[in-house]
């Protein structure tokens, strides 16, 4: 099954995130602005998860020894939540910057899948659009946009839908970082409220719809076990090892099932 198909099915299974946007018989294409706002609206559930995440990021920056400018610069120019958190943890333990950049690469490698999935949808866009949408290809915007692109409803200009999701995520992420940076000074204990649970909560919500096939279960269980076993490895290498182990387990399991079907 092609990857976009998997993703589309998964997100369609999420259901209620995309209410009322099936227009099989419309003869008036929605305007750019209505597509833009539709994209922003459909991103809302993921924004809810990102709000505490962003505030905590800003609030923890000072404790991790990052300056205001470095923390804000990350949200403005890097725009990658989990990588920013990992960088924060590494900076706190005094990791040199080249190692943080390498780790960012490792943590963000998954976005290669996202862009691979988007290639057919972005194919005919002007270069500036490709660059703009690539910059905003976060977990959240990818998840929302790929579903809209995959819907065969004849609507044109879905780039504006994608843009709406991206702009909403971007503004929210930077506003929350700013709030965290300023509120972190006023309420230093904000980082101990445990709002950091918002990240695993959001990610669990994203992973659950994937768990419909046995190879997916194999991938997730393997990744989980290895992530604990390899947790002590330096520079978050355990994350990459766990991810690779999970992907390998999924592929092996898939091949085993295919073999068995052939034998029958």
């Amino acid at each position: 099954m092609p990857t976009w198909c998997v993703c589309t099915r998964l997100w369609a299974a999420g259901g209620s995130i995309w209410p009322g946007d099936a227009r099989p018989f419309n003869n008036t294409n929605p305007s750019r602005w209505s597509l833009f706002f539709e994209g922003a609206k459909d991103t809302f559930p993921l924004i809810v998860g990102a709000v505490p995440f962003g505030i905590i990021f800003g609030a923890l920056a000072d404790t991790a020894g990052l300056s205001f400018g470095a923390a804000m610069g990350m949200s403005l120019f890097v725009f990658a939540g989990s990588a920013q958190f990992v960088a924060l943890g590494l900076a706190a333990s005094g990791t040199p910057w080249p190692m943080i950049v390498v780790t960012t690469f490792v943590v963000n490698l998954r976005h290669l899948l996202y862009s691979a999935t988007m290639v057919p949808f972005y194919k005919n866009l002007p270069h500036a659009w490709k660059m703009l949408l690539a910059f905003g290809l976060t977990d959240e915007t990818f998840a929302v946009a790929v579903t809209r692109y995959g819907k065969h409803d004849g609507v044109t200009g879905k780039r504006y839908y994608n843009l709406g999701s991206m702009v909403f995520m971007y503004l929210n992420w930077n506003l929350c970082t700013l709030i965290g940076l300023t509120a972190g000074k006023t309420f230093p204990e904000i980082s101990r409220w445990g709002l950091d649970f918002a990240m695993p909560a959001t990610f669990i919500g994203i992973v659950i719809p994937y768990l419909v096939t046995r190879p997916m279960w194999a991938a997730v269980i393997t990744a989980g076990i290895v992530s604990i076993a390899a947790h002590d490895l330096p520079h978050k290498l355990g994350l990459m090892l766990a991810a690779l182990a999970g992907v390998t387990a999924g592929m092996v399991c898939e091949n085993l099932f295919c073999e068995r079907k052939k034998e029958k």
């Binding site: 977990d139 768990l211 989980g224 992530s227 999970g246 592929m251």
Partner: peptide
Amino acid sequence: YVPPAVLTA
């Protein structure tokens, strides 16, 4: 398998 594996990790 990358997204669920990475997110789980």
